[in-house]
Amino acid sequence: MTADVNISLTLFIEYLQIEKNYSQYTIEHYHRDISDFFMFMSEQAISGIEEVQYSDARVYLTRLHENRLSRKTVARKISCLRSFYKFLLRENLANDNPFSLVSIPKAEKRLPGFFYEQELQLIFEACETNTPLGIRNLAILELLYGTGIRVGECVKIRLSDLDFHLSTVLVHGKRNKERYVPFGSFAHDALEQYIQKARAELLKGKEDHGWLFVNFRGGPLTDRGIREILNKLVEKSALTGKIHPHKLRHTFATHLLSNGADMRTVQELLGHSFLSSTQVYTHVTNEHLRNTYRSHHPRA
């Protein structure tokens, strides 16, 4: 393997960071996927990126399938390498894109999971409201369900982003996109209770860093911290399985559409760039309607 290989990867990562403004999480995936392909090149005695042919790309695709990776993972890896070579062509570091004609396997269509209202009620009831941490957890739960924001957006909220007069929160989304999202009376009350009664206790006299949600040490709450909080609430509610924060986002969207909200409004609230990302929730609501019909109609 030549030094040019590593240089090309460094340049591509800088491009993703500076020009594309991708998150660190996404960049790590790109770095890992391309590094895995470099290992394959070494095994195949391919010394330079410009030497990779379409036939090599096909062999690599076969290798991914032999490793029994999911279709989604295979599709991500091939898409990553296609983007990598597209960048190399732009920078005149390669003469061809060997992955341009490699067909990406279609991912399994999985409908997003969501909570029924009765299940969600059990999780809300699992929140203790007589401790600072319990009051904080209820505020997190009400805000996630009441706005549909991502957990990564939730941990980035500062006190100054909240407007209690208008009941809105300024959300800092993906790629530095910002949007205002309204929240309802339940989230309004839970947030006020948390800020007035619990947050100062959790800070424990430390200098206020301005982040809305605080961990038990007084520092800013992390993505992982919220996941642990939600999983403990699910365990306490006696519901089976683990919860991922996106399930509350799915629930928010599904409940809105089930109750008559229009697609464009839900798209804007979720911060989706494309309507197609929001349309998946119509499949959820339609499936729910079909199941209800089959279960209750005499001639279903």
Results as ranks from 00 to 15, higher is better:
R63T: 00
E51A: 12
E50Y: 10
R71T: 15
E66C: 05
A57T: 08
V74L: 00
A94D: 01
A75N: 05
I34K: 05
S35Q: 15
E91M: 12
I49M: 09
F87C: 02
F38I: 11
V52W: 08
S70V: 12
S42D: 13
Y60E: 08
N92C: 02
F38S: 08
N95S: 11
I34F: 00
L61G: 13
K72N: 15
S35K: 15
S83R: 01
R58P: 12
R71D: 14
F84C: 07
M41P: 10
Q53R: 13
E43F: 13
I78E: 01
P98A: 05
K72D: 13
L88W: 02
N67Y: 01
P98H: 03
Y85V: 07
E43Q: 15
I34G: 02
S79G: 05
F99K: 03
K77V: 04
Q44F: 10
K77Q: 09
A94G: 05
A94M: 02
A57L: 12
L64G: 04
L93C: 08
E66F: 01
F84L: 04
K72P: 13
T62N: 10
S55E: 14
F38E: 13
N67H: 08
A45H: 13
V52A: 09
A75W: 00
F38H: 13
I78D: 01
V74R: 00
K77W: 08
L64N: 04
F84W: 04
F87P: 05
N95C: 01
S79Q: 00
A94T: 03
C80E: 06
Q53L: 07
S100D: 04
S79P: 01
A57M: 13
L69G: 02
M39G: 05
S35V: 06
L69A: 02
E51Q: 14
F84K: 00
E91P: 03
Q53H: 07
E91T: 08
F87L: 05
E51Y: 04
L88C: 11
A57I: 08
G48F: 07
T62G: 04
S55A: 14
Q44A: 14
E50G: 07
